[in-house]
Design a protein around this nucleic acid. Structure first.
Lengths: 199, 199
DNA sequence: CCCTTTTCACCTAGGTGGTAAGAT
DNA sequence: ATCTTACCACCTAGGTGAAAAGGG
């Protein structure tokens, strides 16, 4: 690994909220026009060279080739079934794929401040409903050398936080997820009843 | 000039609206917390090398060292007076000054689409009220050579549109400017009477 | 039956000039 | 007298899940 990335670290923000969702089995709504994810995927970066240029990327790794069903009106667990989707088409890639370029910032203004990757995500990322995904974050050093492509494999570092995995859905399956979204997402305030935990 | 910038051109967007304001004497509200400018300063860029990296900057050049007064309740013209402000402190600089880094975009995603420089501008740019300014736009080629600083003077190209000059104010002086702002700025719709020209 | 799409009321978030009070 | 500040009603812009309708 290049020394410009080997000391890079990324700390997940809102970790306790992510874990609370993960215990219930996080679900993310996907729509044709694009939908934000909540909780927001945010990391705090450190260990970068302030004088170097970086590109930050994000992608979503399919956790399996299975399609999930919600069962016979049962709210407890979803049974995974084999899927007829062409295999290997959305396999995890070890190299950071050009997924989602972050909002600008030359690096020195990004360091230390949370790098939030919500924002408009129109048809940039396509996820299949009823499939599970693992978000992944990549820090890529922009190598100034002319033959930089030969070193591409050592110029990046990737981060994966298991508590951020989720199932893409078009409508919520687990009502507990719905309730936790309503309780914790400011934009869903209109659906709150009393005043439960103020996240 | 470096060949990466010498063919660069910038075309001002909303030119006719800028000119209509300029005929009346454009005024821009400034506040402590920061205020957007309207019309928005937008340019369409062309003539850039898709494979090169650029940084886009903006700054505001004081048009003179004078302080303006509005006269004895007269709405017609403002008389310029000599100002006791330390001269030369905000002189025009020929080199692009680190003024206002644009919203991200590596260049290939910015080319062709308007590069709008409104957005939150908190205390990043400080302008003195009752002074006139000329906005300026800079395209800077990010030179990958190690001794790039030696070529800094040839790696940028600047653009200045006279119709975008304005006077910074804390409250509007010319009522015609107020009316044109209300008529053309969507956020001021609440102050419109009938339905004049739909800008 | 299960999943998807569309539309909607209800929010957050923030950009307007007006207005009145304050500062110099 | 002239300029500045703080607050406000009224907008734009867009992110929520609910509900109903549509599709296979």
């Amino acid at each position: 690994k290049n020394r410009r990335v080997c000391h890079a670290t990324a700390r997940l923000e809102m970790g306790s909220l992510w874990e609370e969702f993960n215990r219930l089995g996080t679900e993310m709504i996907v729509t044709k026009a694009g939908r934000r994810m909540f909780p927001t995927f945010q990391v705090k970066l450190s260990g970068l060279d302030p004088l170097a240029d970086y590109v930050l990327l994000m992608d979503f790794v399919p956790l399996d080739d299975k399609r999930y069903r919600w069962g016979h009106g049962n709210e407890d667990a979803g049974a995974a079934q084999a899927d007829q989707q062409p295999p290997g088409r959305q396999r995890p890639r070890e190299r950071p794929a050009p997924g989602w370029v972050m909002e600008g910032h030359t690096m020195h203004s990004c360091m230390g401040s949370p790098a939030h990757l919500s924002s408009p995500c129109p048809p940039q990322i396509i996820l299949n409903s009823m499939h599970r995904y693992q978000p992944r974050f990549h820090v890529v050093f922009v190598d100034p050398r002319q033959d930089s492509e030969r070193f591409a494999h050592q110029n990046f570092k990737s981060f994966s936080f298991p508590e951020t995995q989720f199932m893409a859905v078009t409508a919520y399956q687990n009502h507990r997820i719905t309730q936790l979204k309503i309780a914790s997402n400011p934009f869903a305030k209109g659906f709150r009843d009393g005043d439960p935990e103020p996240w």
